[in-house]
Amino acid sequence: MECHLPEITHNSHMKIYIGGLMVITLTLFFNFPIHSQEVVIMDNEPAYFEDNKHCFQCHGQRFYTYENEFTGRIERKAMNPNLIYDADEFYSGVHRHFSCTDCHSPDYEIYPHDTELRFEEMFSCLDCHGGDPTWKRYNFELIDDEFHKSIHSPDHIEAFNCWSCHDPHSYRLKTRSNFSTREIVTYHNNTCKTCHDNPDRFQLISEELKPSLEQIHDFLPNFNLHFNAVRCIECHTEPEETMWVAHNILPKEMAVRNCVECHSTNSRLMSSLYKYQSLENRRERGFFNAIILNDAYVIGANRNHFLNVASLVILGLVLLAMIGHIILRIIK
């Protein structure tokens, strides 16, 4: 079967360039540092809001209606759940200024859709973002390299690609935005749970029947506490210096099981989940890894320098008093 990428790619590139240029111009004009601005403008009217309504009319609903040309009747059908996309989610995502047909064939504008369209090849992230300086700081090439090293790489799982984890219809920049750590954790872990906590999805790529996440992680003293406070990738990836979100998912045998890798002052959480914040504020109010304290308390990682000193002083004074008393007892 011959598949082709629609020529519309160039249009989307053009829009991205124009959007990027606008942001850079505004940034320079207002003398804001470039890294504080996002390339995608999030608070304006989506560029193709009206055009996309046509698609969301059916694909944004659980049920859709159409006129059957043969019978002349209005038919009401259930939409395939895998093809339902929430318009609000789409317009909150990074691809909000796209027209549906930027990525999908323009032939989709005709209904009923041609059945062969379902075999169209999807873009990968690099098709749009690769080799483009606008996206340099997002490290797409590095992400791709890391992905190909990971257990998720197509070498291990043929059908696996970026979209297996990141839905382009709702993808948001969580780590670099003003979301709380809890929100980031939930968002990222839900990405993993989509397959790893869903036997139906999991068996799309594996014949293995897997036990529940809680059973797999029964060595953790409090599974829910850990799962709500840290991301799966904290233990299941090798942290990468220049990336916000590590993509080299390790084989399960190589996952971190040594508690003190997080529960110590040299906590690996500071080079993963709290990497961004830790660059801004390494030490605050004498607490080691103080930034974690906004969201959690990690035993061993959140000691306080001043309390440590105070407790040593108190202990020292007590011991000195005891030694003094012993001396008095000896010399009478």
């Binding site: 040594n258 508690c259 003190v260 110590s264 040299n266 035993i299 061993g300 000691r303």
Partner: peptide, 10 residues
């Protein structure tokens, strides 16, 4: 032991 956990000196 928990409060002063250290991977090098457990």
């Amino acid at each position: 032991s928990m409060q002063y956990a250290n991977p090098e000196y457990p």
